[in-house]
Amino acid sequence: MTGERSSLLFVLVLAAVFPFAVQNPYILHLAVIAGIYVVLATSLNLIVGYVGEFSLGHTAFFGIGAYAAALLSTAAGLPIWLTVPLAGLLAGLFGIVIGAITLRLQGPYFVIVTLAFAEVLRIVATNWIGLTNGPMGIAGVPQPASVAAAGIVGGKQIYYFMAAGMVAVSLYLAWRLVRSNSGRAAVAVRENRFVAQSIGVDPFLTAMHVFTLSAVLAGFAGGFYAHYVSFVGPEVFRFSFMASMIIMVLMGGKGTLLGPVLGAVIVVGLEEYLRQAQELRLTLFGLIVMAVVLFAPNGLMGLLARRPAWLARRAAPALVSNQGEPA
């Protein structure tokens, strides 16, 4: 569908002029965080929206990416333009292994086993002190020299463009996959596993493709995050990252590429607004998740694409037709 394509392009153009229009380092910082979350939400959406399974352990790949970049730069001295892609690749390898195990399961079993993997990794990160420095974490993940030289606003601008580049690459990869035959096959499996098999789709292999790309993207986000905040500890596996990702994908609209982007930007804004009160924020998030499930199962994109759900005659589970794009 060209509508989604042109809106994506529009967002990218807007993103390119943004840091020159806004010279405020605080706003730029928020934009960088939003960029990281856009990649994370896009990544989770590949699983939730296109594999059709719900992962509660997606922080596993974010965390692996973060630790990989932190170790590669502090121990091996590699520069950021190598560590972030390598973080993505390593997360992708873990994605292949974890996917090969978890994608044999469906429904609640998939949810629980993905959660179990993330917990195992968190415990390993806390206890394998020789590698990860345990609960103390890895401090002093180096900034690129250009950032250090560019001053406060300049440094944020450089980070901003790196984040924008990462977002562009991630969205492009996701877009290519979703529009590809594998993406259509994934939608077919999500819609009707039996029909998909009867037209020759291998549900497991298809899910593996999508799952692996999803892991790679989360790894990028983790690697970049490590450099940006210059510290990585076992908290990267914590559940509040997961809660944020869930709400971004659900609120924006799962199964669309633009939805999670929208969701990420809104949620980062909301998080910043409620920064002082983490509990209140998460309380609100929980309510939003419930409200979305009950009243707007396709999120904002569903509301934008069609008439509001409460006007629809029947409680049809999904009205979005642009989610598959088998065009």
């Binding site: 077919a188 819609e191 009707n192 029909v195 589970p317 009205l319 979005v320 037709s321």
Partner: peptide, 11 residues
């Protein structure tokens, strides 16, 4: 009856 019910006929 088994089709992909959220996709259009053409899709």
């Amino acid at each position: 009856t088994s089709v992909m019910k959220n996709l259009t006929v053409f899709e």
